[in-house]
Structures are given as C-alpha cells and as structure tokens.
Computed example of a mutant assay.
Amino acid sequence: MLARKFRERGHTVDKFDIDDAFPEAGDLLERIKPGLFKLKSLQHIREVGNRYDVIQAEQGTLPFSKSTLHFDGILVSSSVGLAHFYEQYSVEYRSETWKWDAKSILRQTFGWIIGQINNPLWAVDRSFEAADLISLSSEDEYEYVADELGHSSKVFLRQNGLAEQRHNNLREEAAPATQRLSNKEVAFIGYWNHRKGAHDWPGIVQAVCEQMPEACFRLLGTGRSEEVVLSDLPPEYRSRVTVIPRYEYEQLPKLLTGSTVGVLPSYVEGWGLGVHEMLASRIPVVTYDIPGPRDMLRHLPRPMMVPVGQEEKLASKVSEILQLRPDAYEELAQASQNVAGRFRWDEIAEQYLARVEELRG
C-alpha cells in the first residue's frame, strides 16, 4: 500500500525480498533463509544501491553501516512488529510450553537456534544504529525505541492504515446495526496459533455461549482447516462456529457483513490489521491490552481491552457488547468506524515522505 502511494506521487519503488534472493530452496535452506538473506541483501545493495535515494529494510535485515553497504542515501529501518516485543512473548511462551523429555528438548533447542540465526536481537539493534530513520508501527514501539534503546532522534511513528477504497468497501458492506445486533455473531481474523490466542478460544467460546446461548462465531483466515480448528474447541459448541481458513482480499467486506463484535485475543501484534478492518466495517472489537490494537481502541468511548491472558474477562466484555441496547450499539459501531478512519494510507504516506525529504535536505 505504501509503495502504491509513492508510485502515485511519481516516485520509483523497487523491492528485493527473500523469494528474489532464493528462488529455489531446499528444506534446510528454507529454515535459515531469513538469516542468509542479510548477506544477500548486503550483496544486492552494493551492486544496485547507487540507483536509489532511500532504502527501507525490515528491522534486522541490514545490520550493516552505510559505509559497509557502499550507500550514501537515506537508510530506513522499519518495524511491522518490534522484535523486542516478540522476543518477550517468545520467552514467556517457551517457559509455559517447555517440555523436559529428550525429544522435546532437542526440537525446542533446534527451534531456538534457528531463531537466533534468522533474526537475533543484536541484528535488529545494529540495524537501528545504522539507520537514519527508524519507522515504527505503534506508539508503544515508538516509546520503547526512543526511550529504552536511546534512538529518540531517529524514531518516526508510522502507524498502519487502510486505503480509501478499502475503507469505503468495508463500510458499504456493513449490515444495519439492528441486524448485526440480532445476529449475535462474534468475528475473528487471524492465523490459528498460540500467539493469536488459539489456546484461549476454548474458554472464550464456552464463556460467551454460557452467557449468551444464541451466540455464534465466525473465524476468518485461520490458515488451518475447519477440522483442526474445531478440534480445539468444546464439542458442544462446535456447531455454532464457522471456520473460513482462507479468503481473497476482496472477499473480506462481505464476510464481515453481519458480524456483531470482533475479537482478537492476541498476545503480541505489530499493528493488528484485522482489528483495523473490523473497525472500518463498523464492528466494535475487543482485544487484550497490547501494543498496536491499543493505538486504535483507546479512542473508543468505552473500554474495549482486558489484561493479557484473561479470557474470562474478554468473554464478559464480548457478552456485554452483544447485549447492548440498539441505540448504544449504533453509537459504538459509528465510533468504531470513526476510529478506523483516523488511520489512512494517504495521510501516512504524506507524513512519511515529508520526514524523508527533511532528512534528504
């Protein structure tokens, strides 16, 4: 989206990604491609970097000084989910799930080694040190990198956004508030894994259904089959759950048409695009209190976040929304749409370009 906006303004934007660097990879190489991509990127920039005024790379991809890169333009290190926050989550997750049998220890140790090869924190820190600008996707990331990592002169808050047409499509497909409220449908957008709250969903489904017997659920973009997802949920409530593992980008507005309330029980996010899309579709959203969603939901007129991991409180908040009076629900739906409208790619692109031009000047 950002590249599209730049091109609309007459700028040339090219990309070099991991598939360009490794068009064919065997199983072993597949596991360590992100780590080797750093060296491929170094080689690529040395060859073609002089064609560009600005190079933007994801955090940790370029842990090299500009002199090492042979590049004298503007170097941007960008986060779509701060590695330090994800590492904090990973440490907590490993401590909860670590198993002490020999086979599990070997597998978990191998996974940790691969993680250190692919994107160690030292590489992220070095990429921040080398950059002229550090582009961050939430206020929490901005404060952490400015205050804790000491890069206050470099940080730039580049929250995520939606294109104008996407805003319009999501809003136009939204069913009337009264219809949505009568549907009692709970929506989720996200991959079905621990980080996104898969292990919390059994408790959420059970608690919501006990409080609201007519509630139903729509789980979108799980990336896992209906059979796998339903097997994680209480058997007595599986008939109330619709699972759509994959969908096309253009299909989402219609898929969200009748949903009443959105949920994201995620433990860590960069931004929370699914939250943003549901808000734009006039769907109030309940989440854990984490960076990214916090930037959006704090603007709503009622509390929509609960402490991380407290699934019963999250379920109670969902049930509370499902039982709102029609006028109160309409007010919250409109407020959700208004919050989504605060974050638009046109404005984000203009602010970003202005900061880069300032550095170039």
Rank of each mutant, 00 (worst) to 15 (best):
E30C: 08
T287N: 04
H167R: 14
Q116H: 13
H276P: 00
A354R: 09
L230T: 05
L136V: 08
F128P: 06
H70D: 12
R195V: 12
S231Q: 12
Y86L: 15
Q351T: 14
I113W: 12
Y93F: 09
T109D: 12
S135H: 11
A163Y: 02
N160M: 15
S135C: 10
Y237F: 10
S79T: 11
L39G: 12
S127A: 11
A163W: 05
F110E: 07
G272M: 04
D132I: 04
L121F: 05
H167S: 01
A335V: 04
K103G: 09
T257C: 11
R195H: 07
I32Y: 01
V91E: 08
L69S: 00
H151Q: 03
A349R: 10
E96K: 15
H44E: 09
D17W: 13
H70F: 14
W271Q: 01
E358C: 05
S127G: 04
H151G: 07
E173C: 07
R325A: 14
T287D: 03
F85Y: 10
T178I: 04
D140K: 12
L75S: 10
E143M: 09
L62E: 00
W345H: 14
E320R: 04
P303V: 08
Y191R: 13
G270P: 08
Y93K: 00
G111C: 04
L279P: 00
I290R: 00
A315G: 05
E357W: 13
L219I: 06
L353Q: 07
L279N: 03
N183Y: 02
V13D: 13
H199F: 10
W271A: 06
K196T: 01
N193H: 06
H167P: 05
K317H: 02
L252S: 02
L28F: 14
I204K: 00
